[in-house]
Amino acid sequence: GKTRKSLAGRLEQAFADKNVLDRQNMEEIEEALITADVGMDTTMKLIGRIEANAAQISGPEQLRTFLKQEMRKVFENVAQPAPVAETPHVVMVVGVNGVGKTTTIGKLAFQYRCQGAGVLIGAADTFRAAAVEQLTIWAQRADAAIVAHRENTDPAAVAFDTVEAGISRSIDRVIIDTAGRLHTKVNLMEQLKKIKRSIGKKLPGAPHEVLLVLDATTGQNALAQAKMFHEGIGVTGLILTKLDGTARGGIVVGICDAMKLPIHYIGVGEAMEDLQPFDHEAFIDALF
């Protein structure tokens, strides 16, 4: 149910009475990109590219094609997801408060189970009220096992125990949930590093993936989130949630451009099935 005016519509309008790129229709383009949360920097960059190639752009169709091509380049330039080589394959999920980490873990566990993998989830959010109960329900729904300690215990110990249990029970996939934390909180980022270290202590080379969850309704702050989490613990991939609303999550264009990180999945609802592989063509189409 997307009611907003599409970028395609805006571009049509921008070229309504003329077939040249002038100041006014550049402004239309700018508005379309900014209101999709693409951000000033990336927008200016794209507009610069349009201006540099203005000679070959003479109508909305060509402009759309050109813009899509520029964005496609961004997503094609990212790193490739690492293959699943050893078991247990350990995935750690991180992000700021309320973006959808726990829900995404439920959905991920369900996907892995559907692929026939055994899944064990570690409840390393020992801080937020009822975080463990929430994750436990998701584990049940997805038919995955869970390791949980009591509230306010050391999350690194939970992570350690989960990996240990994963090894001894020959589990294929281990997913570690972590408490939401703002990237600006130094002590909480330190705690995250400690969790990561303790996973690696139990299983050298793990975690094999560190997935950062970003909320599509977030604006420019998502860029700071991605930078700080990446600097802090080394992110391997992104998941963009809440794309079922009217927010378009354009900020990931800038993030992928700057950091060359792949987007693995998108979240499109609150149900277990509402996780889809990221398809950059579809994402770009939805931006327009």
């Binding site: 900014i34 949360d37 909320d215 309704t217 977030t218 609303g245 927010a247």
Partner: peptide, 10 residues
């Protein structure tokens, strides 16, 4: 959420 982007208006 203070981090909300352009969708805040909708």
């Amino acid at each position: 959420d203070a981090m909300t982007g352009q969708d805040a208006v909708n």
